[in-house]
Design a binder for these strands. Sequence first.
DNA 1: AAATATTAGTGAACAGTGTTTACTTTCTGA
DNA 2: TCAGAAAGTAAACACTGTTCACTAATATTT
Lengths: 217, 217
Amino acid sequence: MTANVSSPAERRRHKIRARILSAAEHVFAREGAEGLSIRKLAENIDYSPAAIYKYFKSKDELVDELKETFFELILENVHRIADQSTPFAARARDCVATYVRVATEKPHHYAAAFAGEATSEGPVENEPGFELSKKGAAFNVLRGMIQEGVEIGAFRSEIDPSLAAKSIWASMHGLAMMIVHIPSFPALKPAQETMSREDFILFHADQVVRGMEAYHG
Amino acid sequence: MTANVSSPAERRRHKIRARILSAAEHVFAREGAEGLSIRKLAENIDYSPAAIYKYFKSKDELVDELKETFFELILENVHRIADQSTPFAARARDCVATYVRVATEKPHHYAAAFAGEATSEGPVENEPGFELSKKGAAFNVLRGMIQEGVEIGAFRSEIDPSLAAKSIWASMHGLAMMIVHIPSFPALKPAQETMSREDFILFHADQVVRGMEAYHG
DNA sequence: AAATATTAGTGAACAGTGTTTACTTTCTGA
DNA sequence: TCAGAAAGTAAACACTGTTCACTAATATTT
């Protein structure tokens, strides 16, 4: 999959980079970006803190790589569902549910993937270009599905797939964030008896698709 | 509104506390929690850093107070809309839209209000009890509206208002977070021509309400 | 093979952060 | 007036990300 780099030096370098990323991944998954300190990370892999900076320009760059890899995972999963040959409505529903499921399996990753480009006022120019990012690719899968829904006649032809995709994405995102930030969700209090999370995800996904189907001009 | 405290000492103390909070509010609105440092804050109000700790147990406690006050603002606004006597469907739509609007007017506040209780594994016991929080109150307003919708016949009686409120809340939350994290949203690239944000919010709100109306068993 | 240039890796420091402790000053209630 | 409480502080602690000057090992070129 990864292009074979030539020289042994480059291979060695790549290997160490991967070891750093792997160690970082473990800590990040448990403790998030704040919990991941360069010093602790360096100790984990028996290097000096400064050594990390020979492989990554900054902590942000390192973390960005973790986030991108994570969104690759989401993309793969959603893509797999979208390409199935099951009936359209169920497939659409599964796409939404899968997104939320995979997203919430690594809460810190998902939260950081959005909080990163964050509220900070910095110009978006720094971003690798939404269209090219894994996030952008995931969005395109979603838009493609809606396009298909329109062509098939499941959705009305007045619908702008791009617009609809954004609305649905927002709804998926919202549920994912809720679960990420409120660990007990859909329960609001720790010991509240309620619908199971899995059932709630499906309920929400249905709700979203229904809103789309019920659109009339 | 606030109970009149007796002694001059207490009044003075309360006043200084308020000054700290006010100074913190300004910085926080512009730069978020990370940008708000105790040292800079102390300098702003001509105190030593340690002095802050005579008024707040920790930076977290200080920030929590800002967040709670902010959610009070959201609550007031949503409540105002919910209590109007306009037709139900439009009112429901306006509630969703208002939530998103007020939320995104202070992006750092809104993001922090959720990121705070965050992915961190700590027991939720520390929370002031969801039911009693302003967040909980806002949720109750939403649930009340849905309840009304069911009684009025706008929604089917099979709907569980509590469940439905969570789903709708997730959808609102999702749009708010999108706008907070992607400043150009609903545009995905900086200079993309697209629907205005205000129109998008209404489109999304309609979508959400429609999903509810179209629920059958 | 020898000399040179590049890269890997490090220890120590810089500039920040939240927070605590010991200490002084100021105020207040009896 | 005088003891006790509260307000306020300087200095330190234990962290953080990051940079710099330096050495040691490896590649490259002559």
